[in-house]
């Protein structure tokens, strides 16, 4: 799997294709069918929110889309790769090259400076130390934290931490930004700033943004909403008012 393959995906081309996708967990003897027969396609450059009530399978979906988990049945193709067919190092490379994650709890590595946190994905991409620092500084500047390079996470506010996490997600210039409740731990003002940042990144860098969220303010600003209920897609289209 080489990096060049990725560059061939143009705006509007399919980036993620899900066909009759199932994810079933075994809880003792009991089957928990978290996703049951999901179909959709997300093209490069889209800005999508996945919504739905608690327990509907949103997180499960996010882990499958992020190649951290694999479907039990059906097909998930990311950038042309059939994810179920890849082994651990291939999946790791795929995540590293194509996906940037943003989590609800930020998930920065403690006692590690901002710039080192952001540079982490580049290390697994085999980028040299100097180049890493340079690109990490660029990414931090892009999210408005160029002045917080050598702070450790415990000295940053929640909004700043999430910006660092976003810088870490975009530092590899991924095709896909995959976010799990990115505003869930932030107050509404800071949440709005972060929302704005996603929109800017989407329009300026052309990066595909997929956000799993409860937050109606976040969902209604997306161009497309996919609603899950009981592991199935019940709505797929532009945001609906009052729903």
């Amino acid at each position: 799997m080489s990096a060049e393959d990725a560059d061939s995906i143009a705006i509007g081309e399919p980036l993620m294709e899900l066909t009759d996708l199932h994810r079933t967990f075994m809880m003792g003897d009991e089957e928990v069918r978290a996703l049951r027969g999901v179909n959709f396609t997300i093209t490069k450059g889209e800005y999508v929110c996945i919504i739905g009530p608690s327990g509907s399978g949103k997180s499960t979906m996010m882990y499958v889309l992020g190649c951290l988990d694999t479907p039990s049945q059906g097909s998930y193709r990311l950038a042309g790769y059939e994810v179920a067919e890849l082994d651990d190092p291939e999946l790791a490379a795929l995540r590293n090259r194509y996906i940037g994650f943003v989590f609800q709890a930020f998930n920065l590595i403690p006692r590690t400076t901002t710039v080192d946190n952001v540079a982490l994905p580049l290390r697994y991409a085999g980028v040299g130390v100097r180049e890493r620092r340079k690109r990490a500084e660029e990414a931090l500047t892009r999210v408005g934290l160029g002045h917080r390079l050598d702070h450790t996470p415990d000295r940053l506010s929640g909004g700043e931490r999430q910006r660092v996490a976003i810088a870490r997600a975009i530092v590899t210039k991924p095709e896909l930004l995959l976010c799990d409740e990115p505003t869930g731990n932030l107050d509404s003002r800071v949440g709005a700033e972060i929302t704005k940042l996603f929109e800017d990144l989407n329009s300026e860098l052309g990066v595909t943004v997929v956000i799993v969220t409860h937050d109606p303010n976040l969902a209604k600003r997306a161009k497309r909403n996919i609603k899950l209920v009981d592991g199935q897609v019940v709505y797929d289209g532009p945001p609906q008012e009052g729903r």
Binding site: P89, N96, F101, P110, L120, Y124
Partner: peptide
């Protein structure tokens, strides 16, 4: 554990 999860998410392999 979380850190390990994050590392895996950003591209670390098991052997890393």
């Amino acid at each position: 554990t979380r850190e390990i999860g994050v590392r895996r998410a950003v591209g670390a392999t098991k052997s890393d």
